[in-house]
């Protein structure tokens, strides 16, 4: 599987460029690499050709959202927040980690991570 590298800073810019070139957003895949880092794979599609962009990110830092560029990205970004606990900034439709989970639960777990970490925004301040 061939893929290109991308960083947090170039994500939006690259997204705008792909959109102008007529690419369609397909989905984002999130994988857990180890205790501290995750990998996001962005899939785009044009005329049945699919291209992949990879990005390695730490678990506790928020990510820029792609949904202002591709509206369709909001659903999968909310799903990743539910399952892996990465917070996406500027989501066009933010479910706040309750896409699948109940909103009255005290959500601190990240169900799809083998190495359970606390969500970045729910870690209590150091006393």
């Amino acid at each position: 599987m061939q893929s290109l590298e991308i960083t947090k800073e170039t994500l939006r810019q690259e997204g705008e460029r792909l959109k102008a070139e007529g690419f369609r957003f397909v989905t984002i895949t999130c994988l857990e690499l180890d205790e501290t880092s995750l990998e996001l794979i962005y899939h785009f599609d044009k005329d049945l050709e699919i291209i992949h962009y990879r990005m390695q990110i730490p678990k506790d830092a928020p990510m820029p959202s792609l949904s202002p560029v591709f509206f369709a990205a909001f659903l999968v970004e909310n799903e990743i927040y539910d399952q892996f606990g990465i917070k996406f900034d500027d989501l066009v439709l933010d479910f706040g980690g309750t896409l699948y989970l109940d909103d009255d639960d005290d959500i601190t777990a990240t169900p799809f991570c083998k190495f359970g970490v606390k969500r970045a925004d729910t870690v209590p301040d150091a006393e």
Partner: peptide, 12 residues
């Protein structure tokens, strides 16, 4: 294993 199903794409 990640599955992107068609309805997921059709919700937006």
């Amino acid at each position: 294993l990640r599955i992107r199903t068609p309805t997921f794409a059709n919700i937006p």
